[in-house]
Amino acid sequence: MHYLTDIILIALGAALINNFVLYYFVGICPFIGVSRRIDMALGMGFAVTFVISIAALLSWTITTFILAPGAPVSKWVAGFFVSPEAAAQVDLTILSYVVYIFAIASSVQFVEMYVRKFYPSLYRSFGVFLPLITTNCAILFACLIIFSRIVGVDNPADAWDIGRALTLAAFGGVGFTIAITIMAGIREELELCDIPKPLRGAGITLIVASVLAMAFMGFTGVDSGLRKVLAPAAVESAQSAEK
């Protein structure tokens, strides 16, 4: 039950409360560039969600098994050369950025080839966005969050498992899709408006995005309220522990 509550709250958090675009400011470039039409926006959103999930899977696996301090594979390999105590202290987190970007670039390439072969109609609708996603901040950002939840926790038992990591990534992509589609709808309406010349294009998009961000700020506090509803026992024990 506790696990399900966690998953729901992570999903809600990633999609709405801490929306990747409107709260964390990642993925702004495609947000402004591809949000002209709803069908293009949806295509971009699906592509991002797809790639972000695969990238999260890869980065969680590599971090947990190779990069984290005391990770199984590194410990085993180092065990051949040094004593077991020293092997347990091997810490390869310095490689994290390089490894993540490498994994993202390769997985994007792989996904593009796979989709082109087996789903040609899908490829025609969003295949053109796939190379653009390699430099999308949102993918790397999801990987970094997962990294901080595995390596940055004080208690190793609290390190995120694959389910939580995938939920964060997938629903982060869903949040990105929601934001970019709403923006596309608004921009389609703006086509007919008389916008002053200096603000046309990116200027008015950013101003509309600020109003959208303000609207999404209305979601703050939903997760703590929901936590009280879904897991009142845990909240009570935490409060009594503070007292």
């Binding site: 590599i62 590194s74 180092a78 091997v90 390869l92 490689l95 490498f102 080839m113 796979y114």
Partner: peptide, 25 residues
């Protein structure tokens, strides 16, 4: 140990990815 493990990881990843992408191609 750390440096050689790091180098080994990167080389291993590069080789693995090359194989996978080559196969996919």
């Amino acid at each position: 140990v750390t440096v050689s493990l790091a180098a080994g990881t990167l080389v291993g990843m590069a080789v693995a990815m090359s194989y996978v992408l080559g196969w996919a191609n």
